[in-house]
Design a protein around this nucleic acid. Structure first.
Lengths: 354, 354
DNA sequence: TGTTAGCACTCCATTACAATGAGTGCTAAT
DNA sequence: ATTAGCACTCATTGTAATGGAGTGCTAACA
């Protein structure tokens, strides 16, 4: 199964060439392209072997060869090892991003959107970024405030500084004293409690103590329930979906339509995020080639993902989606650098507002 | 310029036929398709006239005719008049939506997204919905709360119940008394004030009165400023962008790429929203045919928009984007009905949380 | 034994060309 | 005013013919 040096060089040459042109590459091209000084005939013999081993494919008799998923895989794995050292020196593009993250506007949403956009512009592939998934689940703070005679405002803060607001309409104005009582009731009973542990027993106890204001307690609990629901939902920002039209192998109606839908719906993308977050490889960078992708609509694409981590263990995913013949070198390098920037820089963040 | 009855009928027949097939339609087809009982030769003469008048176009000598923008325009205008009466009886699809709006989940965002999705599924065109633009600008309520020793939570409520939260980190814990003072300071000075009227004079007065806590005031004011900025941003939800692939005239790479980008970026769509909201026709329904659209990337599309209105004069836009040969009849009818449902049903809304 | 030159063969892509057919414009007859 | 008939146009389709890129195989060579 092991390839000797020469075979590996030839395979590499085939892949490099194919990445550029997108056309099957023949023996003659390789003969000139490499510094091996071998005739096309020799190359042909080697290619024949490589095909038998499953690293390259011949679309039809008498055409050049293209890399198989297995071939790409070898290429990528090899590269992942080599590139390890020269990580430090950041490319121009990444510096740009770094600058942007540093002078971040308050809203993380805007930053992530911008980042997706820039990545897409720089790489010419489609990109996606998932917002860090909030892990904290303990209630930190609950407050009822009177906004006007008929309306109360619920403010709920969960560990990790996720904030939820909710308006409650009341029949008649509650005086300050009642409001204070309710606030104390809520905070003494719920503060520090993991949301999952709020059960019916607790709720009915609260309601009982609230007396005629049980209805308000019920509405507050509804709002708390919403926090859970929203927490399960991963926000995903995408950009550069139009880039798929730059690669003929993805641009036919059938495929393009499927891909565009995937990007628009985002449902499927969140599966990709889940997969990436669970299946860790150590480097934090994962490469899915063709059918390796967990999302079927992307079986003709390659996906490179990086997980980044903010403080408190909140993790998010950055993904780049392009054709199989993606510039893995550039993409992986960019993601690696960006990831390391994010991992360190963002750690000084004091949470995010919602 | 006026067309006689027969010419109008022929034009209508041409358009109807073209809407279905997407192919240029010939004289023979019309001769059989209509109940006019005219030979193809007669139709040919009439078609020749219609072409001279600019209502139809011949893609090349010896092909059938297709409608011009002017032709579509006549057709649509005519239809808008006719369809006025039979508005009341809602179609199945719209009933479905009505049901959904009624049992609305708390978050308007989810409802609008769902609505865009359903519309797209029902019409087979791309859709967009803009969230109602918030008009209210008076500060209703400001509060600082202590979440933990180092963190304060700012809660700002603006007229129309737009809510903004912001976390503030403090060096050392503020006691209850100071907090109460700051809250009173903020509310007595700012409550009921239009955001635009908060000027430097007011701010420095506040800071002065806050003494050593001027820094906190500054952060609160930053948060207020953000409310303004966010208010200017119109949220737009889209769905069914992939539907453009169902229409060959839009599905070629160049056009598809442009359209997809338009949908993804949303920047251009907001121009469309602005145009729709300002230029009122009375019915609340507008039809842009081909080059009439304010968005250049949509010059090969037709766009039908409806403005809906919630209480407090908050207006939003629903748009359907498809090929020139759109089923105007169905689309306009659907939008009209949906609009009237929204206008009435949603009026009972008590605002929305953010 | 590994490498190379040479040759026959395959298959795709391009081009050229004729046939088809839908559709028109025009004219003469009704 | 309407229609039948005819010549003409032009996109589309099908069918060869051609060229070229590339392979596999064999025989010669170092």
């Amino acid at each position: 199964m092991d390839l000797d040096e020469r075979k590996r060089k030839i395979l590499q040459a085939i892949i490099r060439n194919y990445l550029e042109t997108g056309e099957p590459v023949g023996s003659r091209t390789i003969s000139k392209y490499t510094d091996l000084n071998l005739s096309s005939a020799t190359i042909r013999n080697e290619m024949s072997d490589l095909e038998e081993l499953g690293y390259i494919i011949q679309p039809h008799t008498s055409s050049g060869r293209i890399p198989s998923d297995k071939g790409y895989r070898l290429y990528v794995d090899q590269m992942m090892l080599e590139k390890e050292e020269q990580l430090s020196q950041a490319t121009q593009e990444v510096r740009e991003m770094q600058r942007m993250v540093l002078e971040r506007e308050d809203k993380m949403e805007a930053v992530l959107k911008q980042m997706a956009k820039m990545l897409a512009a720089n790489t010419n592939y489609a990109t996606m970024i998932s917002a860090p998934q909030v892990r904290g689940n303990k209630l930190k703070f609950i407050q009822l405030s009177r906004v006007d005679a008929r309306q109360l405002l619920t403010t709920i803060v969960v560990e990790g500084n996720v904030i939820k607001n909710n308006m409650i309409s009341v029949e008649q104005m509650l005086d300050d004293e009642v409001l204070l009582k309710l606030n104390i009731l809520l905070n003494t009973n719920l503060n520090g409690l993991p949301i999952e542990e709020i059960n019916l027993a607790i709720i009915s106890k609260l309601k009982q103590q609230a007396g005629i204001h049980a209805g308000i307690i019920a509405e507050v609990m509804d709002a708390v329930a919403e926090v859970i629901k929203e927490g399960e939902h991963v926000e995903i920002y995408t950009s550069g979906a139009n880039n798929i039209f730059k690669y003929p192998e993805l641009a036919d109606n059938q495929r393009a339509s499927e891909l565009i839908t995937t990007f628009e719906e985002k449902q499927l993308l969140s599966e990709l995020v889940q997969d990436t977050l669970t299946d860790e490889t150590g480097t934090g960078i994962q490469v899915y080639i063709g059918n390796e992708t967990p999302v079927k609509t992307m079986k003709d694409c390659s996906v490179v993902t990086a997980t980044y981590e903010l403080e408190e263990g909140m993790k998010g995913t950055i993904g780049i989606i392009g054709p199989r013949r993606m510039d893995y070198d550039k993409v992986i390098h960019t993601l690696k650098t960006l990831k390391s920037q994010l991992d360190t820089i963002y750690k000084k963040d004091d949470g995010h507002s919602g």
